[in-house]
């Protein structure tokens, strides 16, 4: 665990040495506040609720998370530091988990920067904090799954832009599975699987303030699956 945290700390240091990290971190609070207060109808509805705020999250995660993860492995490959990293006395799982935790920490920091929004809403009216806690937990779980996907895609290429485009495309598809599942052309059994695999629908259930352990198991399974894929790619590269 110590070595995993060492890698996570290194990720943080590298990220904050680049202005890009600050821009990406600032993007989430700025965009959410803009959509929620300026473009949305929060004041017109006159209700102390964060429903619309969290409804934006699955869409915002699609461009933001791949931007956080695109450089995780692609940059190491491009600059040639990956070989060096793989030659260190670290296990692959420590490297993968360390990088994942580093990126998750950045996302959590970015989410923490949005805390002004619920505080403002609570100042304006009697906010029910249950759905807010559920919403943040859902965002973190969704973000973790997206980071795992993004990290795996980043390990497949040495070009950050390619990693970002692949990440956006894959997450977009994962958010449209539910809609696809309801189409007439899709067989019923496949429809059920697709419906159960939609990232956004599971998110909405949690953002209502209902923590369903099935949803948690789904997100944790997704994280484990893509981290293992990521590990396999690195393992193959280490031994080739």
């Amino acid at each position: 665990m110590k070595r995993t945290l060492l890698i996570a700390r290194r990720e943080w240091r590298v990220a904050f040495d680049s202005p890009v990290a600050y821009l990406v971190l600032a993007a989430l609070p700025t965009l959410t506040a803009a959509f929620f207060f300026l473009m949305g109808d929060f004041f017109a509805r006159g209700e102390a609720s964060m429903r619309e705020f969290f409804a934006l999250m699955p869409q915002l995660m699609i461009p933001i998370v791949p931007a956080l993860t695109m450089r995780l492995w692609a940059e190491e490959q491009r600059s040639g530091t990956e070989e060096l990293l793989l030659s260190y006395p670290f296990r692959v799982r420590q490297l993968v988990l360390g990088k994942f935790l580093g990126a998750l920490g950045l996302l959590a920091l970015s989410l923490a920067a949005t805390a002004l929004v619920p505080l403002t809403v609570a100042w304006l009216g009697p906010l029910d904090w249950g759905p807010v806690i559920g919403g943040y937990l859902a965002t973190l779980m969704l973000g973790a799954a997206c980071i795992a996907v993004g990290a795996w895609l980043s390990s497949l290429t040495h070009n950050q832009i390619v990693a970002w485009i692949l990440g956006v495309a894959l997450l977009l598809c994962a958010n449209l599975l539910g809609a696809a599942a309801t189409a007439r052309a899709v067989p019923e059994a496949l429809g059920r699987i697709l419906l159960g695999s939609d990232l956004g629908l599971r998110f909405q259930s949690m953002a209502r303030g209902v923590i369903d352990f099935g949803d948690l198991a789904y997100y944790l399974g997704l994280v484990a699956f893509f981290l293992c894929l990521n590990g396999l790619v690195l393992e193959r590269r280490r031994w080739s």
Partner: peptide
């Protein structure tokens, strides 16, 4: 799993 926690 149908264990659920309602935070509202």
């Amino acid at each position: 799993l149908h264990w659920r926690l309602d935070l509202t």
